[in-house]
Simulated assay, not measured.
Amino acid sequence: MKVVKVKAIDDYQLKITFENEEEKTFDVKPYLNKGIFTELKEPQVFYAVKTSLGSITWPSGQDFSPETLYMEGK
């Protein structure tokens, strides 16, 4: 399931639209104290999320698989 649109919203949440037009909200907070994801605590970094190759990424290289985003999204 590919990601076609992503938007960072308040409280470290991502609003994600998938190729089947389904929308889900993904909570990044559980990851913010793990490895390279700690950089996402900075709002200017977190809000720089974009789509890339059917998933999402940040300028510093953090990413999630589209499967994780879909399965854990609500």
Rank of each mutant, 00 (worst) to 15 (best):
E67P: 02
F18N: 00
Y12S: 10
D63F: 04
S55M: 09
G61T: 03
I56V: 15
W58H: 00
D10C: 08
Q62S: 04
E39R: 13
F37A: 05
K34D: 13
L69M: 08
K74D: 15
M1A: 03
V28D: 12
V6D: 04
Y12P: 05
F64D: 02
I36N: 09
D27L: 11
E21V: 03
K50Y: 04
K15W: 01
P66F: 06
E23K: 13
F64A: 06
L53R: 08
Q62C: 10
V4T: 00
Y31V: 00
L40A: 02
E42C: 03
E39F: 06
I56E: 07
V6W: 02
T68K: 13
L14V: 00
E42F: 06
T38R: 15
D63I: 09
G35W: 12
G73H: 00
E67A: 14
K29D: 07
I16R: 10
T51C: 03
E21N: 01
T57K: 09
D10Y: 14
K74Q: 05
K15I: 06
N20I: 01
Q44Y: 00
E22S: 02
K24S: 03
K29S: 04
K29C: 07
V49G: 07
D63W: 05
T57E: 08
P59H: 09
T25F: 07
Q62Y: 01
M71F: 14
I16Y: 05
D27Q: 03
K34W: 15
T68M: 03
G73K: 03
I9V: 15
L53C: 14
L53P: 08
T51E: 12
P66V: 09
E67D: 10
T68N: 15
M1Y: 04
E72N: 10
Q13L: 08
L14I: 11
G54M: 10
F18H: 03
